[in-house]
């Protein structure tokens, strides 16, 4: 089984976000970054399949130099090698254009399965895995809560999460692209040995010059013009004071509400 896991690096959830002076994006200079949450589950799922069936797990990440952190995390946990698609010309693309670049690289690399997270924590388009499937001519399934490669490794069974507690199994022929939901396994931590081993693993760099994509195909069809903090639609009464004062005031309110 050869599994490509797409890993995106995103600003940490705890990061306090500020908007840049021109109001066009966030101030991203001093941000802390993490691996996009479902992507960490995707790496784990790929490693577990490899441990059962053998094969190879390849991490693929597109972004500036800093994304090597995310790549190394995957390698430390046990992925075999990585592809880093790195070119300033590929930074501000929309999901389709970015997926075109990734699809060309993944297509040349070859694969049985592509895993992506179901959605990114930052931009949140929730599309990349499905677009990759379409561009590469393979079936896709989204929001996977279980992945079972079938005997003979010709097909895969995917347990899809639906709304309100419903699920549905789908059977797909391989190769296929599957988007992974958080919570389908318990991701491992990297061991010290894993971290040491990762240093020797290959990270192949790919730039725009290695791709045959025309400018036309890389032109974003949607652009962020302006970013802003949402205007609150509801008036929240903020209770201030020290922890003790705020707690006492809240208790008074709870009594008024008759929940106490």
């Amino acid at each position: 089984m050869k599994i490509i896991v797409c890993v995106k690096q995103v600003p940490s959830r705890d990061a306090i976000l500020r908007i840049n002076e021109t109001g066009t994006w966030i101030q991203d200079r001093d941000l802390a970054y993490d691996v996009n949450e479902p992507d960490a589950y995707a790496v784990e799922e790929a490693l577990q399949i490899k441990e059962k069936l053998g094969g190879e797990v390849v991490i693929c990440s597109l972004g500036p130099d800093r994304v090597q952190m995310a790549i190394k995390e995957g390698l430390s946990k046990g992925a075999d090698r990585a592809i880093h698609i790195c070119d300033p010309a590929l930074d501000n693309l929309d999901a389709l254009a970015q997926a075109r670049a990734m699809a060309e690289v993944i297509g040349k690399e070859g694969f049985d399965l592509i895993f992506t997270g179901l959605q990114s924590d930052d931009y949140g388009f929730a599309q990349t895995g499905v677009i990759l499937g379409e561009l590469l001519g393979v079936p896709s399934a989204t929001i996977a809560m279980a992945v079972e490669v079938q005997e003979g490794e010709k097909s895969v069974r995917v347990k899809r999460e639906l709304e309100a507690g419903w699920f549905q199994w789908y059977k797909l022929p391989l190769p296929a692209s599957i988007t992974i939901q958080s919570g389908l396994n318990q991701p491992r931590y990297a061991t010290l040995k894993g971290i040491m081993n990762a240093k020797k693993k290959e990270i192949r760099k790919v730039t725009l010059a290695d791709l045959s994509l025309s400018r036309e195909l890389l032109t974003p069809k949607q652009k962020i013009e302006r970013v802003s903090f949402p205007v609150k639609s509801k008036k929240t009464e903020i209770i201030d004071g020290s922890a003790k004062e705020a707690a006492a005031k809240l208790v008074t309110k709870l009594k008024q509400m008759r929940v106490l």
Binding site: P11, R13, L17, I19, I26, D121, D122, Y123, G124, T219, P220, K221, Q222, K223, I224, E225, R226, V227, S228, F229, P230
Partner: peptide, 14 residues
Amino acid sequence: QIFQGKINADVSIH
């Protein structure tokens, strides 16, 4: 909404 609802983005169509 981007960043899990923390920020809104105006998106133009091209």
